[in-house]
């Protein structure tokens, strides 16, 4: 399968400190990849590098064979849907949910390109998929954290992206909303087969469709590949005792209070 994202020898320095060190990662088209690591491991930094929001210090990142650099970041960003970990927005900004979701469509348009019925349809479709049609005319500042999260996911989907980058989309959510969001992500993946990169620091948040993971710690990826083969390495991720039991052919993992079943 052709590769969607190819990272080779990537290093990112900030103030002479390695925030990412010699990262090599290949993500194929249509794959669902999770990047897992503790706070400060460099997960968000990695996503920002893929988008070209910050500049690599060494190495290359290619998106669909095109190197991320000044000349084609705009082209690359068009095919990527990105849900950031945090966005600071003005609570009183005069705009509605629907208008915010339309940002995804607007970003694809050239200067004199008209707004089409199709754009409208896509926005409605995405809202329906995320079950937020009822929020459509609400002001953006009046949403709860979970609702806003869904709106941001809808925004990124309205671009009809070829790649989806999700930076801890379940953080700040209550368990019910967490599950809702995870289900939505699963269903998007199963319907559209979009190449998806899912960042989290909780193993239990890895969606079921995800077959491959990269374990990131202190600026380095120390494992990437199928989940099943990573189990022995999990204790290293958290420096924390990890219990692994196999009961009736199912793998049960306990990290502290976290329980994961594979």
């Amino acid at each position: 399968m052709p590769s969607a994202i190819e990272i080779k020898g990537l290093t990112f320095n900030y103030n002479k400190k390695n925030l990412l060190k010699n990262i090599n990662l290949n993500i194929n088209e249509g794959e669902f990849y999770s990047i897992i690591g503790p706070n400060g491991a460099g997960k968000t930094t990695l996503l920002r590098l893929i988008l070209g929001l910050i500049k690599v210090s060494k190495g290359t990142i290619k998106v669909f064979g095109q190197e991320v650099n000044k000349n084609n970041i705009f082209k690359i960003r068009r095919v990527i849907g990105y849900v950031p970990q945090y966005v600071s927005i003005d609570k009183k900004f005069p705009t509605t949910v629907k208008e915010v979701i339309s940002i995804g469509r607007i970003s694809l348009k050239n200067t004199f390109e008209r707004w089409m019925k199709e754009d409208e349809n896509i926005i409605n479709y995405v809202m329906k998929m995320l079950n937020i049609e009822n929020l459509s005319t609400r002001l953006i500042g009046e949403l709860s954290g979970g609702e806003l999260q869904k709106v941001l996911i809808a925004l990124s989907l309205s671009k009809k992206p070829k790649i989806l980058l999700l930076d801890e989309p379940t953080s700040n959510l209550d368990p019910k909303s967490q599950n809702e969001i995870l289900d939505i992500i699963e269903s998007i993946y199963s319907v559209k087969n979009i190449t998806t990169i899912f960042v989290t620091h909780l193993l239990s948040h890895i969606p079921l469709s995800c077959r491959k993971i990269a374990l990131l710690k202190e600026a380095e990826i120390f494992y990437d590949g199928f989940i099943e083969d990573s189990i022995g390495l999990l204790p290293k991720l958290y420096d924390y005792p990890v219990d692994i039991n196999i009961i009736k052919g199912k793998i049960h993992i306990h990290v502290g209070k976290e329980k994961i079943h594979l």
Binding site: L51, L53, I73, I76, R77, R78, V87, S88, S107, L155
Partner: peptide, 8 residues
């Protein structure tokens, strides 16, 4: 942030 990440 959003403007930059969506490619404006």
């Amino acid at each position: 942030e959003i403007a930059q990440s969506v490619g404006i």
